[in-house]
Design a protein around this nucleic acid. Structure first.
Lengths: 242, 242
DNA sequence: AGTAGTATGTACGCTACCGCACAAAAATGC
DNA sequence: GCATTTTTGTGCGGTAGCGTACATACTACT
């Protein structure tokens, strides 16, 4: 691996949406970190000492059931942050947070975020709007789990993941995708096989390349678009908030 | 129907959890309303002019898909409120809100709630904690949809509904329950039949009576308990918030 | 180059749930 | 009381996805 690409806090869309004054105030406290695949940032019921603003990493929020089964409820990429339960007042959640795609992000001491949040104003407004977008994502996951096929769900998941990366290629085994969607690995093999035969994706041992994004958009269920639009609506420049 | 039972704002646990000063300030503005079954309080993308604090009514938050299929993502009873999107800053959500159980509740002009919320302090803290509990409920619904049987989900749904009512009897057709859970009506007939044979419930045309609550608790998946505990933890007296 | 380990492909029987069709029973209205 | 409507019961073929088992192929290590 050659030298890392340059990272800047404003590559996180949430941070970038902050007014200049607040952004500059937070900036000196933002610490660039690399998050390796599979890293557990928060266990069920655990407390975060930092909040994370992904740049090139994706963090998965998921549940693990008593029988060992698991499901992702939402993902967090450069459009968002990990740690909303802090300012929501619960301090912990029953979900887990693990690194789904290795990469960089900025972290910020929880206490500092709370300090900003409690001043009200733009930071608070923005974080709450982001949280609402997260609620939409979780809700849509619930509905999609109920009514759509694995192939549709895989398409949704791929598009959402793609939107969070600048690349067309994801480092991701079928096993891992399966555990995100809460289905069998074989189910992903089959669905991915269909997408590959349609010329939409190509994959090889842990690497999935999307060849035809618009083809994927034709395969996906409505859930993708609902989530995407809601993020667009809710986390544009906070100055636009009436 | 004889005279209605007396209703008091503090029968809503969220209102009851407010400090006295804030409660008294809101009280004169709370308006008792009766909500009939099926009433649509908010369509997808619509805005609320009031927020609602259920007493004996239950409001269902649900999605309707393009193909007409639907699923509940969460319910709102006397433990909560309808309208979190207002203070979350989004003003609308892609979900619908309809009355699942007819009954009474208090409503409050959206502007007045916003005024209280924006003062920060206890009201804000409590509402955000409630919103986090709502997120847990939605998340657990997503996971439950994926991994548990109709019988388990029905049990979960019955218990959550019972907790919101003072009665052991729900006015509810199997058709309606099916559309909440996003499954076929026949699936509910079958699952309910099993519960009836086990002596746990009894039903007749739109009335379901729970005979053996602890039996139901043995049938249910873990999802019920996770949601219940999280509500307990998050919306006890707001004075307990550290 | 050979080997161990990991990732993917495939097959087969099984189950939960679906979609549909229709019968039976209970409530409602006239 | 009788007809209509609504709700619930039941049956049947179809299917998506599961659990299991095992084969194949790619990668990495020595």
């Amino acid at each position: 691996m050659l030298s890392s690409p340059p990272h800047q806090p404003n590559q996180n869309r949430l941070l970038a949406a902050l007014p200049v004054a607040e952004f500059e105030r937070l900036k000196p406290h933002l610490e660039l970190v690399h998050l390796p695949l599979g890293d557990v940032l928060c266990e069920s019921g655990g407390r975060l000492s930092y909040v994370y603003f992904p740049i090139s990493t994706i963090i998965s929020l998921h549940y693990i059931l008593e029988n060992g089964a698991s499901s992702e409820i939402a993902g967090v990429g450069n459009e968002g942050m990990l740690g909303v339960s802090l300012f929501m007042g619960g301090e912990s959640t029953p979900s887990w947070a693990t690194v789904q795609t290795a990469g960089h992000g900025y972290r910020l001491k929880a206490a500092l975020l709370m300090q900003e949040f409690n001043q009200g104003g733009s930071v608070q407004r923005l974080l709450l709007r982001y949280t609402q977008a997260l609620i939409t994502q979780i809700s849509q996951t619930a509905v999609c789990n109920r009514h759509h096929t694995i192939e549709q769900q895989l398409s949704r998941w791929l598009l959402l993941t793609l939107d969070r990366l600048n690349s067309e290629e994801l480092i991701m085994t079928q096993e891992l995708i399966a555990s995100m969607l809460g289905v069998r690995r074989e189910g992903i093999t089959e669905a991915a096989g269909k997408l590959q035969q349609a010329g939409i994706i190509r994959y090889r041992r842990g690497h999935i390349t999307v060849l035809d994004r618009s083809g994927l958009e034709k395969h996906v269920c409505e859930c993708y678009e609902v989530v995407r639009k809601e993020f667009e609506r809710l986390i544009r420049d906070v100055g636009n908030v009436r």
